[in-house]
Design a protein around this nucleic acid. Structure first.
Lengths: 236, 236
DNA sequence: CGTTCACAGTACGGCAGCGAACAGAAGAAC
DNA sequence: GTTCTTCTGTTCGCTGCCGTACTGTGAACG
């Protein structure tokens, strides 16, 4: 049973479930604290659990043979890890790990799958979530091909902030560089620019959004697109 | 009923279905010839039909507000258009249109959905197909961020060739530029390089792979990754 | 309290790809 | 055939980002 003081509705997917269905799941949840770098999915290892972040942020990262890497997806309080288990794929090729530490609800994959297969509200919700994931993947593909670093960085910070439900969080330039698929030096330069514009502030390993509207203006249209997708997901 | 002379098994998804299930679907198929640019999905318009390409190639293209565009997915004989209908999304934001003309099997979306919901072989197959689509989307995201034009172009030509089941097809530099999200001039330069290396040949609006192995060597690792994903999909 | 280390600032040459433009050449239309 | 359109070849300056490398600094730890 879930520990006291943990509110599962901090996860927006769970918050969207009808009370009954949520209660049916509650006994199976375990609240866990994820540290930076903790893997919840390891390539080639069967996925045994799904995670619903409460205030942690998970990253899906694609790594090339030469070691170059880019984030290809992010899972915050609006999402759930382990989509492949819904799609008859017990494992996958990309790792999912904790980008920003925090809490998440852990649950056995077979329980989620069974409930999903019952075709209740969770079925519809996760289907729409998967659709959102696909759409966002398409935008990311385009965004990476077309948009400049500064725009993408602003977008990334905003999305992470939304996914975390916080205006500041721990993050180094080094890791942000991996997320964006650029050099660490490029991140330092760009971050410095954004700071000079008064949009963000940061110190060693910690970053804070100081002017959210300004940052939105400095980001690419993709941020709004992403946000609209999520609103659609949770509005109907 | 399906016209004579049309072999539905040219589509690899359909070919993977057990005889019985395929036969149940056959009466509902209509063979259509798709011309370049024909839209099978229009943003904001409910998706009424799914298409299984036989020797046509469909493209999913993401377009930005300033008109810049990139291909974010491709559907050949290994796939099916209209995934959103399986995910409780009756419409989507990205168009799907014919990139390389040819034939496809058209079928009412509610029939596919109903058969999918029966949880027979089609259910499993399309689930795994969706998983493949998600994985490939992730690779595309990374590929666009990290790889140079020449590599991506080689990859695109090989994938298209596979999707079509042909070593040559109609395609202008202009359209290839949209697919890759680069200038038309960049395509001309890169294509010229590949031609000088003896890997491809082309004339106005027509392109031919002349040295497949060489082209594979000139492409990024993503091509092999994509191909492996498909093999996994169809191997069992 | 000084050493160490992780993180951030900055610099420099190099080049891939961009934007814009113009010219030639193969087909299509007349 | 002659015109018109579409497709391809190519050039020029420009800039964003890279690879690499060195320096500076806050924080943790001995």
């Amino acid at each position: 049973m879930l520990q006291q003081g943990i509110d599962p509705k901090r996860n927006r997917l769970l918050a969207s479930l009808p009370e009954r269905e949520l209660e049916a799941l509650l006994p199976h949840f375990e609240a866990v604290t994820l540290a930076h770098g903790d893997h919840v999915i390891v390539p080639g290892v069967p996925i045994r659990h799904n995670y619903f972040p409460l205030n942690a942020l998970l990253s899906l990262v694609t790594t090339m043979e030469d070691g170059a890497a880019v984030e290809s997806g992010v899972i915050g309080r609006e999402g759930m890890s382990g989509i492949p288990v819904l799609l008859n794929a017990e494992q996958t090729t990309m790792p999912t790990f904790t980008q920003v530490p925090g809490e998440a609800l852990k649950i056995k994959a077979e329980i989620v799958k069974a409930e999903y297969d019952r075709r209740g509200a969770l079925h519809t919700l996760l289907n729409r979530y998967m659709h959102t994931v696909v759409v966002m993947g398409s935008y990311s593909t385009a965004c990476n091909a077309l948009h400049k670093i500064e725009l993408r960085m602003a977008k990334w910070l905003l999305l992470s902030s939304d996914g975390l439900g916080a205006e500041e969080f721990d993050l180094t330039h080094e890791f942000l560089a991996v997320m964006l698929g650029v050099r660490r030096a490029s991140v330092s330069e760009t971050a410095s620019t954004l700071r000079n514009e008064g949009l963000i502030n940061y110190t060693r390993g910690h970053i804070k959004i100081t002017d959210r509207l300004g940052l939105e203006a400095a980001s690419c249209e993709c941020y709004t697109k992403f946000k609209d997708e999520y609103e659609r997901l949770f509005s109907g």
